[in-house]
Every structure is written in C-alpha cells, then in structure tokens.
C-alpha cells in the first residue's frame, strides 16, 4: 500500500475501517426511529381520546353566531370552524370550500364560525371584532361574507399582510355601511369591551379544544382532519363526513 497520498482526507471520504462513527450514527438513527415510531403508534391513543368529542358549551356557546341553522326537526349536525379572518389559508378555504358548504347545506347543518385570530396576523383581531360588532346588529353572517369576499382588499397588499388598523377600520366601516349597519353604533361596538371579551372567549375555547392552526373544523364535536392534497379533495372529504353525519 502506498504511503499517505497528498489528497486531504475529509470525513466524507469514508472510513478506512468500520468506525465508531458508523456505529454511533446507526445508534442515533435507530433510536430516533424507535422512539418516534413508538410515540406515534402508542402515544396516539390518548390523543384520539381528546379528539373524540368536545364539550358542547365550549364548541358552541349559547350566543354563538351561525351562518346556517339545522332544521330543528331533522338530524342535528354542527360544523364549527375556528378561523382567522386575515389568514390566507382561511380565505382560501372560504373561496374553495366553506362558501360552497354554506350554500349547499343551508338549513341542513348548523354552521358556527368561531374566532381564533393568530398573533401573526396584525389585523385579525380587529376583523374578528368587526364581525362580532356586526353580530350585535344581527348582521354577523353578512360581515363574515364581506370580510372574506374582500379579503384581497383589506388583508393583503400584493404578497404581504396589511397591518394598518386605521385603514382597515375605514374599510370595515364601508362594509358596515354596505350591509346596512348603523355605522356609528358599529364604530362604538368594535371597540366595546363585551365584543373583545367575546373574541377572547372564543380563543380560550379554541385553546381548550386543542386548536393550533386555522382553520380548524369540528363536526359534531369531532375534529375534522383534512387529509387531501388539494382543496377539491378536502371539500369532498368534508362533504362526505357531513353527509355521513346527516345520515
């Protein structure tokens, strides 16, 4: 064997003999696989327990707003959505899925949007209060629709999130006018303590239910786990679960 060549050895050139490195690497990888696998397979049990059925008052408080009410004589199916008005995923869900569900299942399911404004969306708490303020004049659903249909106007500017509350407040007042609200009352309600308390209550409920991201859905108290790759897949899955619940 020739003496050491001038080629510099790097760890990537491979060991000369099975080394402590190979052994240690295998140990790390195998241990990690075993630990993750065990936790995922066996630890999943207690997680299923929490997703089985959520307490009803936490999911749908008495004063919750609805986009649609189930026929009292028919099967009672409740779809709860924890949402953030400024989140792009929520807006995309609205455009692709929930606006259609709202229409197609009107009068057959109780559709309850709950507030879950995330910290990362500067205008989300204001938008949540705007919807709740409209709710005080019995126009929650109209404001909800306005906020999502005009999402690209108030929530984003090109690729970045808007963050000027004054400008957003002006836009929301315009929507309030368009849906026929008493704008002065709306302006006062949007800053009212009971309105912001309601948003906070929704968030606290969401946290209790284990909501971490928006949108998160619950069908009759059971968390809906979207598994599709596209919105069309998720829509099909959601419709299938609603249809199953409707029997």
């Amino acid at each position: 064997m020739p003496t050491q060549s001038p080629r510099r050895r790097s760890p990537l050139d491979g060991p000369r003999r099975p080394s402590i490195n190979v052994i240690l690497t295998s140990v790390v990888v195998v241990l990690a696989l075993v630990v993750f696998g065990t936790i995922l397979l066996f630890g999943g049990d207690d997680d299923n327990g929490t997703t089985a059925a959520a307490p009803s008052e936490t999911l749908v408080p008495e004063d919750a707003h609805t986009l649609s009410e189930a026929d009292p004589d028919g099967p009672q199916v409740t779809l709860v959505e924890f949402l953030d008005y400024q989140c792009s995923a929520c807006a995309a869900y609205y455009r692709n899925i929930t606006s259609k569900i709202e229409k197609d299942y009107a009068g057959r399911i109780t559709f309850v949007p709950r507030n879950f404004p995330l910290d990362i969306h500067p205008l989300a708490p204001l938008a949540a209060r705007a919807a709740e303020a409209a709710g005080k004049q019995d126009k929650f659903a109209e404001m909800y629709t306005k906020l999502y249909q005009n999402w690209t106007d108030w929530a984003v500017q090109g690729e970045s999130l808007r963050s000027d509350p004054k400008e957003a407040a002006r836009q929301f007042e315009r929507y309030a006018r368009e849906i026929g609200l008493d704008v002065a009352q709306f302006r006062a309600d949007i800053e009212a303590a009971d309105v912001s308390k309601k948003v906070q209550r929704d968030m606290a409920d969401g946290e209790k239910l284990g909501v971490e991201a928006t949108p998160t859905f619950f069908i009759n108290g059971k968390r809906f786990e979207p598994s599709g790759e596209t919105f069309a897949d998720v829509e099909r899955q959601l419709r299938a679960e609603l249809d199953k619940a409707l029997g």
Partner: peptide, 19 residues
C-alpha cells in the same frame, strides 16, 4: 395557491406571506 400548499400545516403560502 402554491403547489406546495396542501393543508394548513403543510403550507408554503402562509410561510411565504410572513414577514
């Protein structure tokens, strides 16, 4: 919707839109 946005967790959109 970016090709890598599948659901609320796997979502390029939310990440790309962040500051």
């Amino acid at each position: 919707i970016p090709t890598c946005s599948f659901n609320p967790v796997l979502s390029c959109g939310s990440v790309m839109d962040s500051s």
